[in-house]
Design a protein around this nucleic acid. Structure first.
Length: 270
DNA sequence: CCATATGTTACTCG
DNA sequence: ACGAGTAACATATG
């Protein structure tokens, strides 16, 4: 489920949860296919390391373990829960890190698309485009990139090597706010439209962060942060999953762009 | 049974 | 090199 908003919410919740500067005293790997090295090597490297800091770049959650990094991607259905050390792992809970203060970080992922990478550096993130919450995400660089590509705007905004962080929900929302049709060629966007898009992306994301993410559905497999709490942004969506346009009340169109369902208003977005 | 799902990568073809 | 299109990963839900 997670896009940048949900990963940011998890990161902030974890930082407040008093696991920083804690030593990892035990590691449980129930599904070795979710890690990038052998189970034995992973446990050996992670065990007894100390969690210095927690970062986020694009949709990646990163644990700084001082001389190495644990880089996590949640893909479609990955979740991080924080439990106590006596917690008994349930179905689809594949990895656990136990800290010296008896907190247990649990990785839950029904579809198992997610991945834990234990690496000495962050070089696997080198190709990522600018993180949309970073200071470097300026209008000038964004506009320049828009002009350099020959693709439709929806495909570009979803491309993590173009800009990092947006997923299907927030791209639909930002394009609606900016009144841009998802199939518009990026080179055809006037400077003013592009400016509008840039600020719409920022507005969409900051609103969703305030709402602690979007939780579609109400099972455990939908978004919840580390205490299994749901976000609230699903109650504030403008077009994604909607049937009628909140501005002109016409019927919301659903088309596939780049294999992804796109919701938009034909009358308001062109 | 069928379609769909918050993500990404690998592959083919032009 | 670039872009379009497709399949794949594995499971749950309506």
């Amino acid at each position: 489920m997670p896009e940048i908003v949900e990963v940011e919410t998890i990161k902030n919740d974890l930082i407040r949860a008093r696991i920083l500067s804690q030593k990892i005293v035990d590691v449980k790997i129930l599904k070795p296919s979710l890690i990038n090295i052998s189970k034995k090597a992973f446990v050996q490297k992670a065990k007894n390391s100390t969690l210095q800091n927690i970062l986020r770049i694009g949709k990646y959650l990163i644990f700084d373990l001082k001389d190495k990094y644990l880089i996590i991607h949640l893909k479609m259905t990955g979740h991080i829960f924080l439990k106590d050390e006596d917690y008994i792992l349930q179905k689809h809970e594949h990895i656990a890190l136990i800290f010296e203060n008896k907190k247990m970080l649990v990785y839950f992922d029904p579809r198992r698309f997610g991945k834990f990478y234990l690496r000495d550096d962050l070089s696997i993130l080198n190709k990522l485009g600018c993180d949309i919450l970073s200071k470097n995400f300026t209008f000038d660089t964004f506009y320049e990139k828009l002009k350099s590509k020959k693709k439709n705007i929806k495909t570009l905004l979803l491309d993590q090597n173009f800009i990092a962080g947006l997923g299907n929900i927030y791209v639909d929302e930002a394009l609606f706010l900016a009144k841009i049709h998802p199939e518009t060629f990026s080179q055809n966007l006037a400077k003013k439209k592009s400016q509008n898009l840039y600020s719409s992306i920022k507005k969409t994301i900051s609103k969703a962060i305030k709402n602690r993410g979007t939780s579609l559905g109400n099972s455990r497999s939908n978004f919840s942060s580390i205490y299994e709490d749901f976000g609230n942004n699903q109650n504030h969506l403008l077009v994604h999953t909607k049937k009628t346009c909140p501005i002109c009340f016409s019927k919301i169109k659903k088309i596939k762009v780049n294999q992804r369902t796109s919701h938009f208003c034909e009358k308001c977005q062109d």
